[in-house]
Amino acid sequence: FACQWLNAHFEVNPDCSVSRAEMYSEYLSTCSKLARGGILTSTGFYKCLRTVFPNHTVKRVEDSSSNGQAHIHVVGVKRR
């Protein structure tokens, strides 16, 4: 389900990036709304992400508004 969900909601775009945590959060929200069992852990979800978008990269984005915490963004992917 996770791989199908990724294909339905995201697409390849080399000029874009999406927060990896936001992607997983949206996946969890969809699973909750659909009352799905067998929800992937974040590790399983990221493995699926690598399968669906094998050419993506990740980058660390520093967020000055959150006490220097960094966010991981998936580069080469955008929301549909």
Rank of each mutant, 00 (worst) to 15 (best):
F1C: 11
F1D: 01
F1V: 04
C3S: 03
C3T: 07
C3P: 01
C3W: 01
Q4D: 08
Q4I: 14
Q4F: 05
Q4H: 06
Q4L: 06
Q4N: 11
Q4M: 06
W5R: 01
W5K: 01
W5N: 00
L6S: 04
N7F: 02
A8T: 06
A8G: 07
A8P: 00
A8V: 04
A8H: 06
A8M: 05
H9V: 04
H9W: 03
F10D: 00
F10G: 00
F10Y: 15
F10S: 00
F10Q: 00
F10N: 02
F10I: 02
F10C: 02
E11G: 05
E11K: 03
E11C: 04
E11N: 02
E11W: 01
V12H: 02
V12D: 15
V12S: 14
V12K: 11
V12N: 06
N13Y: 08
N13K: 09
N13E: 10
N13C: 07
N13A: 08
N13H: 07
P14D: 02
P14H: 04
P14V: 06
P14N: 04
P14F: 10
D15H: 04
D15K: 04
D15S: 04
D15G: 06
D15E: 07
C16W: 08
C16E: 08
C16Y: 15
C16F: 05
S17F: 10
V18P: 00
V18F: 03
V18Q: 09
S19W: 13
S19Q: 07
S19T: 12
S19Y: 10
S19N: 05
S19V: 11
R20I: 06
R20V: 10
R20W: 09
R20G: 12
R20T: 03
R20P: 05
R20K: 11
A21D: 04
A21V: 05
A21R: 09
E22L: 09
E22I: 11
E22D: 13
E22N: 15
M23S: 00
M23P: 01
M23K: 00
M23C: 09
M23Q: 00
Y24D: 01
Y24Q: 02
Y24G: 00
Y24C: 09
Y24R: 03
Y24S: 01
S25M: 09
S25R: 10
S25P: 03
E26K: 04
E26Q: 06
Y27R: 00
Y27G: 01
Y27A: 00
Y27N: 00
Y27Q: 00
Y27M: 00
L28D: 03
L28Q: 10
L28T: 10
L28V: 10
L28Y: 15
L28S: 14
L28M: 14
L28W: 10
S29R: 09
S29T: 06
S29M: 09
S29E: 15
S29D: 13
S29F: 03
S29A: 10
T30W: 06
T30Y: 03
T30V: 07
T30R: 12
T30D: 12
T30N: 15
T30G: 13
C31I: 10
C31L: 10
C31W: 06
S32N: 12
S32Q: 08
S32L: 06
S32V: 09
K33D: 09
K33Q: 11
K33R: 10
L34C: 11
L34R: 14
L34T: 14
L34I: 15
L34A: 11
A35Q: 13
R36Y: 11
R36M: 10
G37K: 13
G37V: 07
G37S: 14
G37C: 04
G37Q: 05
G38W: 03
G38P: 13
G38L: 10
G38Q: 14
I39C: 14
I39G: 13
I39S: 13
I39L: 11
L40Q: 08
L40H: 09
L40I: 14
L40N: 09
L40V: 11
L40K: 06
T41Y: 07
T41A: 05
T41R: 07
T41C: 14
T41L: 09
G44D: 05
G44M: 13
G44A: 09
G44C: 06
G44S: 12
F45L: 08
F45E: 01
F45K: 00
F45V: 00
F45M: 02
F45T: 01
F45Q: 00
F45G: 00
F45C: 01
F45P: 00
Y46Q: 12
Y46L: 06
Y46T: 13
Y46G: 12
Y46I: 05
Y46R: 12
Y46F: 03
Y46C: 15
Y46E: 15
K47Y: 02
K47D: 09
K47P: 05
K47F: 09
C48D: 01
C48T: 14
C48K: 05
C48L: 13
C48F: 04
C48M: 02
L49H: 01
L49Y: 01
L49T: 13
L49M: 15
L49G: 01
R50I: 12
R50Y: 06
R50G: 08
R50Q: 14
T51A: 12
T51L: 13
T51V: 11
T51F: 05
T51W: 05
V52C: 03
V52G: 01
V52Y: 01
F53D: 00
F53C: 01
F53S: 00
F53R: 01
P54T: 07
P54S: 08
P54W: 04
P54D: 03
P54Q: 05
N55I: 15
N55K: 04
N55G: 10
N55T: 13
N55F: 10
H56V: 10
H56C: 04
H56A: 09
H56K: 01
H56D: 02
H56I: 07
T57L: 09
T57K: 06
T57S: 09
T57A: 11
V58K: 02
V58D: 01
V58T: 09
V58A: 08
K59V: 15
K59D: 15
K59N: 14
K59L: 02
R60A: 10
R60S: 11
R60N: 04
R60I: 05
V61I: 07
V61M: 07
V61G: 15
E62Q: 12
E62M: 06
E62P: 11
E62N: 15
E62W: 14
E62H: 05
E62R: 09
D63P: 04
D63W: 07
D63L: 06
D63A: 10
D63N: 05
S64R: 04
S64V: 05
S64P: 14
S65F: 02
S65Y: 04
S65G: 03
S65V: 08
S65A: 03
S66F: 14
S66T: 06
S66W: 02
S66A: 15
N67M: 05
N67P: 04
N67V: 03
Q69P: 08
Q69G: 14
Q69F: 05
Q69S: 10
Q69T: 08
Q69R: 11
A70H: 04
A70W: 07
A70S: 09
A70T: 14
A70V: 11
A70R: 13
A70Q: 05
H71G: 11
H71I: 06
H71D: 10
I72T: 14
H73C: 14
H73D: 14
H73P: 01
H73R: 10
V74Q: 01
V74S: 02
V74F: 03
V74G: 10
V74A: 09
V74H: 01
V74M: 12
V75R: 12
V75I: 13
V75E: 04
V75T: 03
G76S: 03
G76V: 00
G76T: 02
G76E: 01
G76I: 01
V77Y: 00
V77L: 14
V77Q: 01
V77E: 00
V77A: 03
